[in-house]
Every structure is written in C-alpha cells, then in structure tokens.
C-alpha cells in the first residue's frame, strides 16, 4: 500500500448507532425458526387423509390392493357390457319379412273382430269356467 492508500485506510468509519441494537435484536428474536415453524404447522387435509388411509390399510396392504383391483375390473366390465348390449341387439334384429307383416295384419284384424261388439251376438251366454266337480255333476244329470 502506498501513502495515499494508507491515508484512506486511516479514516475512521462512522459508528453503528447504539440504539439500533435493541430494535434489531427484538425483531430478530420475534421470528420463529423456519424448521420449527414447519414442524408446528397444521397438516393439510390431504396429508391427514393419507395418514388415516395408511393407518387403515397398513395391516394387509396387498389384500386391500387386490380387492380394489377386483372392484375396478368388475366395474369396468359392467360398464363395457352396458354400453355394448343395445348395439348387439340392434345388430341381431332383422327387418320383418312381408309374410310376417301379413300375418301381423291378419292377427290385428282378428283381434279387432273379437273385441269389437258389432258382429258378436248379444244373447250369447258368457262362459264362466266352473269347477271340475260341478262339470261332473252336469254330465251326470
């Protein structure tokens, strides 16, 4: 160091104000250490749920996992069958033939004649089934 540097070096620096000590240290001591804060922080809902599930499933984790897998397979199969069933039925159904349509038309006509009152005699007794013992009595007389 030359003379100039020595001269600069000899200049005394300003003193730290004494009254800062109390305020700065009070502010520093007022904060909690970061690791302490994280230890005492409240656990989140998910971590609580995870903890509870772990406690519940811990004794036989493989059995619970197997059961869950079986349920997943069942639900998957159920949903896939439900989705595919109408399509299969629709595929299998064929349009009715002309004979069947004619037959259906004939049956509909007969049904209309049967329930219609126009061509049915009014004095015709209505048939009421009787017990077999009664029918035997009628035959004897």
């Amino acid at each position: 160091m030359d003379d100039f540097e020595q001269r600069l070096k000899r200049q005394p620096l300003r003193q730290l104000p004494a009254d800062w000590r109390e305020g700065i240290l009070a502010a520093a001591k007022a904060v909690e250490p970061a690791d302490h804060r994280s230890r005492t922080a409240h656990p989140s809902f998910l971590s609580t749920l995870n903890h509870q599930l772990s406690t519940l499933l811990w004794p036989h984790p493989k059995a619970w996992a197997g059961l869950a897998a079986v349920w997943i397979v069942i639900v998957t199969m159920n949903m896939s069958m439900r989705e595919s069933a109408p399509a299969v039925m629709a595929k299998k159904a064929s349009p009715p033939s002309s004979e069947m349509m004619a037959e259906l038309k004939q049956q509909r006509l007969m049904y209309a004649q049967l329930i219609g009152g126009g061509d049915q005699p009014a004095d015709r007794p209505k048939f009421f089934p009787m017990p077999r013992s009664g029918r035997v009595g009628m035959m004897m007389t």
């Binding site: 700065i24 240290l25 502010a27 520093a28 001591k29 904060v31 909690e32 250490p33 970061a34 690791d35």
Partner: peptide
C-alpha cells in the same frame, strides 16, 4: 439478523 434468526 432476522434471516439469521429464522434460519439458525
């Protein structure tokens, strides 16, 4: 100093 206190 707050940082030093928070991270001992």
């Amino acid at each position: 100093f707050v940082k030093l206190s928070r991270e001992p």
